Amino acid sequence: MSTADTLAPTAALDALELAQALIRRPSVTPADEGAMDLLQRHLEALGFTCRRMRFGDIENLYARRGTARPNLCFAGHTDVVPVGDAGAWTQDPFAGEVKDGVLFGRGAVDMKSAIAAFTAAVAAVLARGEPAGSLSFLITGDEEGPALDGTKKVVEALLAEGEVIDHCIVGEPSSAVALGDMVKIGRRGSINAWFTVEGRQGHVAYPQRAANPIPVLVRLMGRLQDRVLDEGYPEFQPSNLEVTTFDVGNPGTNVIPSKATARVNIRFNPGHRGADLAAWFEDECRLANEGFDGTVEVRSMISGEAFLTEQGPFTAVVADAVRDTTGREPDLSTTGGTSDARFIRSLCPVVEFGLVGTTMHMVDERAPVAEIYGLQKVYERIISLYFERIG
């Protein structure tokens, strides 16, 4: 049992020890393995009122300390991706061991250390006095999985209840090379689409008796890729479409198959809406079906819309805190994939700031201990500046 499991309610929290304790809970999505219980105990000891919000198999936690506004929220996830080949790790992925000043383990970067750092930062701030407002945590166990029963459902519930969160920091590993060199103020949207062309199987020597789905799907994919979606958008790179799979499953050399499928993904900037791109897919399928003795269908799923948190007092608080603590001027960026910020944006302005993400999801995921403590210091400064300027 780690020290973080046994700390007295009045003791200052150690970010490293709490990160180790969280890593020792093998909470691979959708498993929780006690990670949420551990965090809840420490938040309750700090005076937070905790609500467990379970949806399906997923454990979620919303904790708030105080009732006044503004309400500054920290969001993150306790679930982690699988370790892959455990034998390839030089350290046990769920032991939370420190070697040569580096913490190893699944979740060390993405993102149990950030949760620990923010919790320790809150404890340090509270030890100096009461903030002029509220602090809250929105923690899910479904960020690395389908993300259907996690933050999305919690946000919907909080909106329905009228809960007010004024601003949010997501602890995703946003730094690129050094702690503090990047803060994410927006993300591109994401849409996946599954295309299915159903034809009619037949002998390759008698094509008139068959309906080959492959040329139809090839032409369809070509048209999709030939379209230039845009040339970019202020603060964003150009949108891009990628064909991520093309499958026929035909072992015969003399057989025209009956079906061909493909999947595409578009990462899009705010110049597009997911629904418009889904409608474009439908239109292209109708065109592809003209003159073809078969069917062409598509099923789309919008993972999230593009968003941008406009630069202003909140982004200035975060950037100034990073600069004051690390000496670095952060790049306010919109690069990268998606995160749960795409759901939180419907509640309030949101930014992402966390550790350097170079080893996330990798074998030997790891974070320097000094960087974890550095992140805690940045979070402390963010909280203090926030309530000085916005509170």
Results as ranks from 00 to 15, higher is better:
Ser134Tyr: 10
Ile165Ser: 09
Gly232Thr: 04
Thr119Ile: 06
Trp280Asp: 00
Gln225Val: 04
Ala95Glu: 13
Val80Lys: 00
Ala193Tyr: 11
Thr325Gln: 14
Asp57Arg: 12
Ser136Val: 05
Gly145Met: 01
Cys168Thr: 13
Leu375Glu: 05
Ala19Gly: 12
Gly274Phe: 02
Ile191Pro: 05
Arg187Asn: 04
Arg267Ala: 11
Gly232Val: 11
Pro93Arg: 15
Ile169Phe: 02
Glu163Cys: 09
Asp5Phe: 08
Asp149Tyr: 14
Gln201Lys: 15
Arg54Asn: 13
Cys168Trp: 04
Lys377Val: 02
Asp14Lys: 00
Phe74Ile: 12
Met53Cys: 03
Val183Asn: 07
Ile266Gln: 03
Ile372Tyr: 06
Trp280Ser: 02
Asp324Pro: 11
Gly374Arg: 03
Ala193Trp: 10
Tyr62Met: 03
Glu17Pro: 05
Ala19Leu: 00
Pro30Thr: 10
Val243Ser: 09
Gly180Met: 08
Arg106Leu: 10
Cys348Val: 05
Leu61Asp: 01
Val122Asp: 00
Gly133Pro: 00
His203Val: 07
Arg52Phe: 11
Val216Asn: 04
Glu156Val: 13
Gly202Asp: 04
Leu220Lys: 07
Glu297Pro: 01
Ile382Glu: 09
Pro93Ile: 07
Ser258Pro: 02
Val255Cys: 12
Arg65Tyr: 09
Glu144Leu: 00
Asn289Ile: 07
Ser2Ala: 09
Cys348Asn: 12
Leu224Ser: 01
Met182Ala: 15
Met221Cys: 15
Leu241Ala: 06
Phe104Cys: 02
Met221Tyr: 08
Val298Arg: 02
Ala114Val: 00
Gln376His: 10
Asp110Trp: 01
Phe281Asn: 00
Gly357Asn: 07
Ala321Gln: 07
Gly171Thr: 03
Arg299Gly: 10
Gly105Ser: 06
Trp194Ser: 15
Ile169Tyr: 01
Val170Arg: 06
Ala176His: 08
Tyr386Phe: 15
Glu310Trp: 13
Leu22His: 01
Ile372Glu: 07
Ala108Gly: 10
Cys348Ile: 14
Met182Val: 14
Met301Asn: 14
Glu198Leu: 12
Ala124Asp: 14
Val28Ile: 11
Met362Phe: 05
Ala11Ile: 08
Ile169Gln: 02
Arg299Pro: 05
Ala75Gly: 11
Ser2Gly: 15
Ser136Leu: 14
Asp283Asn: 05
Glu97Leu: 14
Asp57Ala: 15
Arg263Val: 04
Ile23Cys: 03
Glu156Met: 08
Met360His: 06
Val80Arg: 02
Thr334Pro: 06
Asp37Arg: 15
Val248Phe: 04
Ala316Gly: 09
Ala123Gln: 09
Ile344Thr: 11
Pro207Met: 10
Phe74Gln: 13
Asp293Trp: 05
Phe74Leu: 12
Lys99Arg: 15
Gln40Asn: 06
Cys168Ser: 10
Val350Lys: 13
Leu159Phe: 02
Val28Asn: 02
Glu161Phe: 01
Leu158Pro: 03
Glu144Asn: 07
Leu7Val: 13
Ile266Ala: 10
Arg41Glu: 15
Pro251Asp: 04
Arg52Trp: 06
Ala121Val: 04
